[in-house]
Each structure stands twice: as structure tokens, then as C-alpha cells.
Computed example of a mutant assay.
Amino acid sequence: MTTTEQTHLVTALEVRIEQTRRRLARLRDEGLVDRVTLPQAGWTRAWFATQCGAQAAAQWPELALCQPSWLMRDRTAARL
């Protein structure tokens, strides 16, 4: 899981954070990631890979050695 801000810092520091938000929203529309809102953290959004997203990423050669041992199944589990 990662926040919007963390994703921005790691992947796209050279652009405005709005672009990172749009990219994450597009990935969500495609079913590759989902998000939960954490009210106890100032309504921060935390993003996580869906099963479809994890399967797609697992095919990348760069991630061949980084297979997750578990995966978030739904938004409620992610929030907890």
C-alpha cells in the first residue's frame, strides 16, 4: 500500500501531483489498483494493487523476484 503522495515522490517528482492523481485514477478505472480512504490519517488515500494489477505486474521481468506472499482481497481488508 502507498499513499498518493508517496507514489508521487517515487514515480513522478518532476510533474505536479495532480498528474499522479490522474494516473492513479486511470489505473483504478482499468481495475489495476484500488484505494481506501483513511479517516484516522486526515482522509489520506491509500492505494493497493488489485488481483488483476498484481497479475499484470508479475509478468514484468523486473519484478520476477518480488512476488508478493499475499494480496489485498477487498477494500475493507485494506482499510483494516
Rank of each mutant, 00 (worst) to 15 (best):
T3M: 00
T37P: 01
I17N: 04
Q67W: 12
E14Y: 08
T20M: 00
V36S: 02
A77R: 14
V15H: 10
W70Y: 10
A41T: 09
T11H: 07
L38W: 08
M1P: 11
T50G: 03
Q19G: 03
R28K: 15
G31F: 00
M72H: 14
L24R: 09
E5K: 09
D34M: 12
F48I: 07
A78L: 13
R22A: 15
T7P: 01
R26L: 02
E18A: 15
R75I: 15
D74L: 09
Q6D: 08
P61H: 10
R26S: 03
A12G: 11
Q51I: 15
T7W: 00
A64Y: 04
R35P: 00
L65F: 09
G53P: 04
R23V: 11
L63M: 11
R23M: 11
D29C: 05
A78G: 05
A56P: 00
E30Q: 06
Q19W: 12
V33A: 07
G42K: 00
P61E: 01
F48Y: 15
R75C: 03
T50Y: 00
Q55P: 01
R79H: 08
Q59E: 10
A78C: 11
T37A: 10
H8V: 03
A56I: 07
R23K: 14
E62A: 13
D74A: 06
E14F: 04
W60F: 13
L80P: 06
R79W: 01
A54F: 01
L24F: 01
A64V: 07
L65D: 08
L71T: 14
M72F: 15
I17K: 09
Q55M: 11
L32M: 05
G31V: 06
R75T: 06
R26K: 12
E14S: 11
L27W: 03
G53T: 04
V15I: 11
C66G: 05
D34S: 13
T3I: 04
W60M: 11
R73F: 08
A49V: 09
A25P: 01
R45G: 01
M72Y: 15
V33I: 15
W70K: 09
Q67K: 14
P68E: 00
P61N: 02
Q6I: 04
A57S: 06
Q6F: 06
T76L: 15
F48C: 02
R22M: 13
C66W: 13
R35F: 04
Q40G: 09
R28M: 11
C52G: 04
